[in-house]
Design a protein around this nucleic acid. Structure first.
Lengths: 351, 351
DNA sequence: TTGTACGCGTTATCAT
DNA sequence: ATGATAACGCGTACAA
């Protein structure tokens, strides 16, 4: 049997034969074509087109030891995961950046804690070159895993165990993440409310096990050093949760004249309660949100003044950071480093 | 150089050496261990554990010609994609089913039409064994692609080109999809409204380029054969769109006493307008939605009577259908076949 | 600049 | 039941 039966897709061998060159030369052309005579480059290119050749990914991975894929791990037991526009936009940003670098996105959804065994096996199995992960809670098992198997990872949002004064969590070593300047953005929001003459400024916080929520609360406190604890209520980043918190606040502090909500969803919930209780916005109560979530902030009535963060850009940045680490040329360092992206106050009708 | 330097992960060769068997035997154990003496099975298993061996995916794919991964293609230019809880839940169902079968989920987001070149290259590149795709519009290029490269594909929702009386689109050949019984569910909703004595039943339809919308409209018409066209308004499956449509309807037909909205989001939009115009629900106007979207139908005020579809189940079903086709044992047929899943009317406060 | 030849880690075929 | 050994398709030293 001298001839190989065509099993379907053309191989590099076939391309080489058709172009009248060796497989090595054909390979060089496929990978950029440096140092090949233009004449031959054309011939090989033509053969590739003729045959409809597409490189075999598995074979390539086997020899290069790179998969050209990264995992996106979404470990959020809540329903909110995708219905929160935040994730959608960030995922879009990631997708765009990865696509631009011919890198594939493998989605890993984790629901139960037991799923982490599977995740670890998968990551250790060499299916992906790196990982992107979201919304880590303080006790998340993921960092221990990625560290143990030395998988380059970039987190979306500052992980809960970092930046603690007591050094707890330092055993995970240096970590890299992308996050908005939550604290600074919150400060700007509250300062703005002060500048508009508001004096009783309440805060609807997010769940305290998420750093985005605690950081925004910290920002609020930075400006209002002696804020009455009664002016702070904890929500859960959902609209109904925001409504509940707003009701609490009004009960406790009927004389409040402004509210800074830790996200837009909660702000819309608060808006409903305020209207229901006969407080006009922004006349009686000024309201500022966070995120500038589309379909939410702009469409609210009145439109929401809010702290904007470039969510899609943060997604792109996460991907870029990871890809840079993975790049054999620039990325000798295993830890991509972290980036804090700026926020900006968007003025609309609510404050 | 007799010895190979350990490049990191242990190979099957290493396992075999440690267990004192040949690579072939080790391989057999890894893949189930049929026809290997129990004694040796144990030895190999121990070696695997000791070394922390994980099979090399690329090498395996190279020889088996199966990747153990499927693509999920989401081709929706709108932002709505993920913020619509519908997709989230369906994706969850898919993820669960794939995970249960050790199959990976590669996410392909397409935004521009030009992205399809990339998609085709990717699918043709043998990265995945099959594909799952969503929300196809009539002129979507995807079916032509999957057909050309013979990629087993299951669609979520009846594709726009199928089931047309004029046979247009038949060039794509048989197609397989999973969809809810939209038409039947719509019929049930309208019949229920009739049974409650409602006589002027309006319909807020979805965008007419989606079969879920046209099918639900068809169901409405099945029951109300001579419905006044003025009783039908087209929305876009969003809450603001539903509000707009509701306003139109009230202007055109002030005497309407019931509304069937093609999804819950639009129903909530309609709810706001009805309240605003002083119509009480369900006393003055009865309202029925579609989807039974969580966080939407139940939390509406009043809670929404709606047509439930098992969205997560539909996702699982899509994956199961595809996996069956891919299974070399059962799946000789290339087209997985289609499934229509039942709906059920959930009675709450709005009708 | 081009070609030869080897190795990447597995599975599968064939002897034994 | 087990063990050699040949693919699988590609990249890349090294030689020419």
């Amino acid at each position: 049997m001298a001839e190989q039966v065509s099993t379907g897709r053309p191989t590099l061998e076939a391309v080489a034969a058709r172009a009248g060159v060796s497989r090595a030369t054909a390979s060089r052309v496929v990978n950029g074509g440096d140092g090949v005579r233009p004449h031959l480059v054309d011939k090989v290119r033509a053969a590739i087109l003729d045959l409809g050749y597409v490189p075999n990914h598995a074979a390539r991975t086997l020899v290069t030891r790179r998969t050209g894929a990264v995992a996106v791990i979404i470990a959020e037991p809540e329903i909110r995961i995708f219905s929160d526009p935040f994730f959608s936009r960030q995922l879009r940003g990631i997708s765009k950046e990865l696509t631009a670098h011919d890198t594939q996105l493998v989605l890993l959804l984790v629901e139960h804690r037991g799923d982490y065994d599977r995740i670890e096996r998968y990551l250790a199995g060499g299916h992906v070159d790196g990982a992107l992960a979201f919304s880590l809670h303080t006790d998340d098992p993921l960092p221990a895993i990625t560290r143990r198997i030395a998988m380059p990872t970039v987190y979306g949002g500052r992980p809960g165990w970092t930046g603690r004064a007591d050094g707890a969590g330092d055993q995970y070593g240096p970590v890299s993440y992308v996050d908005a300047d939550n604290r600074g953005g919150a400060r700007e929001a509250v300062r703005y409310l002060l500048s508009r003459g508001r004096r009783q400024i309440a805060h609807i916080a997010g769940p305290m096990d998420q750093t985005s929520a605690t950081d925004r609360l910290d920002g609020y406190r930075d400006v209002l050093l002696d804020a009455d604890p009664a002016l702070i209520a904890e929500g859960d980043f959902t609209a109904p949760g925001g409504a509940r918190a707003m009701a609490e606040l009004l009960d406790r502090c009927p004389d409040l004249d402004a509210v800074f909500a830790a996200n837009d969803l909660m702000a819309t919930g608060a808006l409903g309660v305020l209207r229901q209780r006969g407080r006009s916005v922004p006349e009686d109560v000024a309201l500022v949100g966070f995120d500038d979530a589309e379909q939410v902030a702009e469409n609210a009535d009145p439109p929401l003044t809010t702290v904007r963060q470039d969510i899609e850009g943060m997604g792109r940045l996460m991907a870029r950071l990871l890809l840079r680490t993975l790049d054999p040329v620039h990325g000798s360092q295993r830890v991509p480093g972290s980036v804090i992206t700026p926020t900006s106050l968007v003025l609309r009708g609510s404050a």
